[in-house]
């Protein structure tokens, strides 16, 4: 129980450098995510081709849903990769 009394170390600037994030779709008033717009979609996939979590990108829930759909469509028509190839330069 001694542990309980011991003061927990104070958060040393816990969220330091963390900038408040804003849904860039809301900011730019884009309400639908176009699956043909590869330039935008690319910002929301990792370099392994995975859809980035909105905790990292700050996208709101509504736009994340649309974004995910857009990315999946773009993948289907080979505008975006499903994954990175293992053998480069094929």
């Amino acid at each position: 129980m001694a542990r309980d009394r011991r003061e927990r170390p104070k958060r040393r600037g816990g969220w330091r450098f963390r900038r408040k994030k804003k849904c860039s779709f809301c900011v730019n008033k884009i309400d639908s995510v176009d699956y043909k717009d590869v330039a935008i979609l690319r910002q929301y996939i990792s370099n392994r081709g995975k859809i980035k979590p909105r905790r990292k990108t700050g996208v709101c829930a509504r736009h994340q849903r649309r974004l995910a759909l857009g990315i999946k469509r773009a993948r289907h028509i080979a505008l975006l990769p499903y994954t990175v190839e293992h053998a480069p330069g094929s």
């Binding site: 040393r12 600037g13 816990g14 969220w15 330091r16 450098f17 963390r18 900038r19 408040k20 994030k21 804003k22 860039s24 900011v27 910002q43 929301y44 980035k52 905790r55 990292k56 990108t57 700050g58 996208v59």
Partner: peptide
Amino acid sequence: GEVEPDEAPVGEEAAEDSE
């Protein structure tokens, strides 16, 4: 301030590290 989605992850990772 404008937040670029590309920059956001950096902040997040930094925060996670400190945690």
